[in-house]
Structures are given as C-alpha cells and as structure tokens.
C-alpha cells in the first residue's frame, strides 16, 4: 500500500541529521538498547519479516514520521504481540499481566552470539517457473503494484524503464509473506538511470538500483 513509510524521493526534508545521529550502539539511550535486545530475543511470536515490516507501515502516520526509530519498533512489537494474542490492550494499559507465567531460561553472551551466527537465513526457495529475464534485459516496472496490502515496489520507481543487472534466484514474495504465506519468485537487481527516475534535474552520470520481484516487471 502507498503508506507513510514509502519515503524514497519525497521532497521537503531538511539536512541529514548527521551530527545528532551518529552514535555507536553503546552510546544509545538505555531504552533504545533494551528495545533492540528485546527485538533480537524474538518476543513477537509467529511473525514473518514482511508482516513485521507491514506492521510498521500501518503505524499512525504522524507517529511514523515523528517517533525515534526504536520507539517505532516498540509500538510495532506491542502491536504484533496484541495481534498474536500474547497480550491484551488491558495488559498494556496496566503495564503488567494479571497472571505471570514461568520465567524464560536466561541466555548468556555466548548463547546469543551463537544465535546471531545462525541468523544468516536464506530467503531463497523453490519456484517452478523459469526466470523471465536475464542480465542486460530492458524492463519496465508496473505503475500499480500487484495485489496485496504490502509491497516492496516503491512509488518512485513505478512505471519506469530499467535494465536487469542480476538475477538472484527465487526469493520469498513480500506480498505473500505479509499474509503469512510462502511463495517464491525470481528476484532481480534492476538499474534505473537517475534521469529516468527524476527527469532532467538528475545527474546523467548516476543511477539507482532496486531489488525487484518478477511480478513487478514487464518487458520494456
């Protein structure tokens, strides 16, 4: 959906907040570090990467633009836990559960480093259809993305002609992942000239690449 998260190319923003936004992880506020630790711990159950992303996309738009990054994550994790049924809105308002469950077993630093080393998961899968495009092919993106509440075809790159740089095999389709389903489809890196994306104001030397699923593309 064309929601608030789709920021690429939007105009009106000011300078990049470099000086205020350059802290190392260790220098972040405690609540930010806790939020990241909770996220890595997997407190939202039954979540796919695209349902997680779509959850962020469905935030109250003004909150999406004004909240600090990990404050958005906090809202989204609470939403995901509510949606899953792990907690209720009354629990959130109370800040505690009425009946506590058995404590989870604590993990050590070695445990979590081992978990991290196994988190390099692949999103590739089987697809019966051979890829429709090959490197060098000219393609055009759709003006209207395929059906589904969640898409990874940004507004700024719709209805534009580009060139296939690489084929990456079949990857999990985000539209279906956000619905809790698994489907795999050819994924390509596609290069677009800056001029085709932004018009004559763009620098003719430059280009932008996006990683796009086959359903987003037609032959040019």
């Amino acid at each position: 959906m064309d929601a608030i998260h789709d920021l690429g190319g939007m105009q009106g923003f000011g300078p990049i907040p470099i000086a205020t936004g350059d802290k190392d992880f260790a220098a972040l506020a405690d609540w930010e570090k806790r939020m990241w630790g909770l996220a890595r711990s997997g407190v939202a159950q039954g979540v796919t990467i695209d349902w997680f992303r779509h959850g962020l996309e469905r935030m109250v738009p003004s909150d999406y633009l004004s909240f600090a990054y990990f404050n958005k994550w906090c809202a989204n994790y609470l939403m995901l836990m509510l949606d899953h049924g792990s907690i209720t809105l009354e629990d959130v308002k109370r800040g505690h559960l009425l009946a506590k469950e058995a404590e989870a077993a604590p993990k050590s630093i070695d445990d979590v480093l081992a978990s991290n080393a196994q988190a390099n998961i692949s999103f590739e899968g089987a697809c019966d259809t051979p890829p429709a495009f090959a490197a060098g092919d000219a393609v055009r993106t759709l003006r209207i993305p395929p059906p589904g509440a969640h898409t990874r075809l940004p507004r700024y790159a719709r209805g534009v002609e580009g060139r296939i740089l690489a084929h990456h095999g079949a990857h999990a389709v985000p539209e279906r992942g956000a619905e809790g389903k698994k489907d795999y489809q050819a994924l390509y890196t596609v290069a677009f000239s800056a001029a085709d994306l932004w018009g004559p104001e763009a620098d003719p030397r430059d280009d932008v690449t996006l990683d796009l699923w086959e359903a987003y593309l037609v032959p040019a």
């Binding site: 806790r34 990241w36 630790g37 909770l38 890595r40 711990s41 997997g42 407190v43 159950q45 792990s86 506590k100 469950e101 058995a102 404590e103 989870a104 077993a105 604590p106 993990k107 050590s108 630093i109 445990d111 979590v112």
Partner: peptide, 11 residues
C-alpha cells in the same frame, strides 16, 4: 515467559 531480562542484557 517470552524472554529473560538477562537475555536482553546479553544482546
């Protein structure tokens, strides 16, 4: 019971 506070510390 989804996470222990020590696990968050570890991350």
């Amino acid at each position: 019971g989804l996470v222990a506070p020590q696990t968050v510390d570890a991350w």
